[in-house]
Write a protein that binds this DNA or RNA. Structure first.
Length: 274
DNA sequence: GTGCTTGTTGGCCA
DNA sequence: GTGGCCAACAAGCA
């Protein structure tokens, strides 16, 4: 599930439940795949007893910073989620990491374990945080930057290129389809053969979709929507893409599905021509 | 049982 | 070396 805006949604959940709170206990299963490459002993030792100071989200990653300089990195993979549960929460089967404070339990849950828990201690920013590409909503995400990237990936379908985190950080499968649908560009088009006008549209729609997804899904004014699946307007492709016999909200014509760039892709043939 | 799944990585090949 | 494709990772769901 988690792409840019869902990641921000989950970050706020933990943040609102525990910012400023002291972590009294850490529960984790060291052998879980989400900890691959991470020193769980150091993680548990450093985080226990310190306060959660702040947090940020970038692309599909989050960083939680603690008063003693420790930093916890989370990636939700395909099926990860964060929950703020009651203090008495007992870790369930897929609750790989739980941070307890005096008033809540911060749960990292991930059945498929494609997600990841990272840890950093020391001066400077962790590598896994520093290396994230400049955000799509930052000034660094320019038409020129997009154009040169598309040129370099000229033979790949545009759908596959939009999924590349090195240039489109935070875009996932549904956001990529949403961008192309709004841009009226067929997902199978080769990235290097789009016109300058089409590249400008892709650039603009990337920013639009990110902005709207953050506003709608991550919540406004610091207030969180109760869950992730409500509040998505019906004029988005999102609400129609998996419905059997789903139709394009703009043309009212049937949607099409196929594997493009290795991922299930949905588009509106009446609107997005090859 | 079968065949899917909103992510990422590493290996293979041109 | 670069770019493109795909299997693998693991578990749940219809």
């Amino acid at each position: 599930m988690p792409e840019l805006a869902e990641v921000e949604f989950y970050r706020r959940r933990w943040h609102e439940a525990a910012a400023g709170q002291r972590i009294t206990r850490v529960a984790l299963h060291p052998g879980a795949r989400v900890f691959r490459g991470t020193d769980t002993t150091a993680l548990a030792r450093m985080i226990t007893g310190t306060r959660l100071q702040g947090s940020e989200a970038a692309a599909k990653q989050m960083i939680f910073r603690f008063a003693n300089g420790a930093a916890l990195g989370l990636h939700l993979g395909m099926s990860g989620e964060l929950e703020a549960a009651a203090v008495g929460h007992e870790p369930a089967k897929h609750d790989h990491l739980v941070l307890y404070t005096g008033r809540s339990a911060l749960v990292f849950r991930d059945p498929r374990m494609f997600g990841r828990v990272l840890f950093h201690r020391g001066p400077g920013e962790p590598r896994w945080w520093q290396d994230i590409a400049p955000a799509i909503l930052s000034p660094d995400f320019t038409v020129a930057v997009v154009a040169s990237f598309l040129q370099r990936r000229s033979r790949a379908p545009i759908k596959a290129v939009l999924l590349m985190q090195e240039r489109f950080p935070g875009i996932g499968n549904w956001m990529a389809d949403e961008v192309l649908w709004r841009a009226a560009i067929h997902p199978r088009r080769r990235a290097g053969y789009l016109t300058p006008a089409e590249i400008r549209i892709i650039h603009r729609k990337c920013r639009n979709v990110c902005r709207m997804a953050l506003k709608t899904i991550a919540g406004q004014g610091g207030r969180l929507p109760p869950d992730l699946n409500v509040h998505i307007p019906d004029r988005w492709l999102f609400n129609h893409r998996w419905q059997p016999g789903g139709t394009c909200p703009r043309t009212r014509r049937p949607l099409a599905h196929a594997t493009i760039g290795g991922r299930t892709t949905c588009w509106s043939p009446a609107r997005q021509k090859i």
